[in-house]
Amino acid sequence: MTSCHIAEEHIQKVAIFGGTHGNELTGVFLVKHWLENGAEIQRTGLEVKPFITNPRAVKKCTRYIDCDLNRIFDLENLGKKMSEDLPYEVRRAQEINHLFGPKDSEDSYDIIFDLHNTTSNMGCTLILEDSRNNFLIQMFHYIKTSLAPLPCYVYLIEHPSLKYATTRSIAKYPVGIEVGPQPQGVLRADILDQMRKMIKHALDFIHHFNEGKEFPPCAIEVYKIIEKVDYPRDENGEIAAIIHPNLQDQDWKPLHPGDPMFLTLDGKTIPLGGDCTVYPVFVNEAAYYEKKEAFAKTTKLTLNAKSIRCCLH
């Protein structure tokens, strides 16, 4: 018999989150649709729960009410004593943790798909938090293969000092899905179709896995975050240069030392320094102006996964 890495157990509980950011409308629209008619997301033997994560922000069509829901799922915020004085999103995070967690427990949901849009030209993107997770690498390989020839990129946010504390991190297997470009507060049919297909293929993978299909060893190309880059700023902290036209919409493309990065209003080009080629992502993302992030630098690498098969009882 072929030796293989056996994944822990079959997958039982899956959640699909929309509206973690209330103005990213593809996930909101799909989740609302699936709450009314969820036939397309159901798979035999699998509990799939669509869920609106930040209903107040969705109602106002804004990213958040008090603070970013997708950055506060750490033990400090989840452990705060519940009171009306807490920011709305912290209270909501505790409610979500109660419903789908608790985080880092045996009772937490197996998989959470968190649906997002970006204003950046990132196409279909899967966000991975753990480079050693054979199950998710296999799932992402399946999704990428199923979507081809449509490109699907994998963004690895594993980093020693950049801690995200994402909404989906309460699950055993957290999956971020990011599709763009799409303006905030807008629905685009092409973007919706791409996100819908990503979810379909992900659920198909889980179904095949649960039925005992063995997935042979595989490898995927990923883009691992190195650092986030702020806009150049003046002495008052105001933005002093904008994304250069040569960099705009060039997510995932190589940016070499000396290539144009920013452009000042008086026409001066600010190039990339250093001696390493990087791959920019979230270029000129609207939501990241407040976070002082013009783009993120990534490096390209390959992740390998062992063969996996479900432990059938």
Rank of each mutant, 00 (worst) to 15 (best):
E24K: 00
T167I: 06
M139Q: 00
F205Y: 05
C124K: 02
G19I: 03
H201N: 11
T44A: 14
L30N: 01
P183V: 03
M198H: 00
H98R: 13
Q12D: 10
T62S: 08
H208T: 08
V28L: 10
D74R: 06
N23E: 05
T62V: 09
D68W: 03
R233C: 10
F73T: 13
F262S: 01
K292M: 08
F100T: 06
Y153L: 09
Q248M: 07
S169L: 05
E290M: 15
L30C: 05
F205T: 00
F17A: 06
D110C: 04
V14T: 04
I96G: 09
P254Y: 02
R196C: 03
K224S: 09
I239G: 02
K200N: 14
L25F: 15
D266G: 14
D193K: 09
V281C: 12
P87T: 12
D114F: 05
N133M: 04
N54T: 05
A15C: 06
Q194Y: 08
N133L: 03
A57Q: 05
Y223W: 05
Y173M: 13
E84I: 09
A286D: 04
K228Q: 15
H98Y: 07
N133R: 03
N37H: 11
I206C: 12
I143F: 00
Q138D: 02
P271C: 07
I220R: 00
L25Y: 10
L99P: 06
C310Y: 14
C152K: 00
H208M: 14
D114W: 04
I239M: 09
K224C: 04
V186T: 14
C61R: 09
D114Q: 04
G237H: 06
T264H: 08
V281E: 00
L156W: 14
N70F: 06
A294Y: 02
S146M: 09
P216Y: 05
T298L: 04
A202Y: 00
V48F: 01
K300V: 08
I52C: 09
K81Y: 07
R168G: 15
N70L: 12
L147I: 13
L25A: 15
L272D: 03
T53L: 05
G274I: 03
I191T: 05
T269M: 15
N304C: 13
Q42H: 11
N210L: 05
I41G: 03
E89T: 05
P216D: 06
I170G: 05
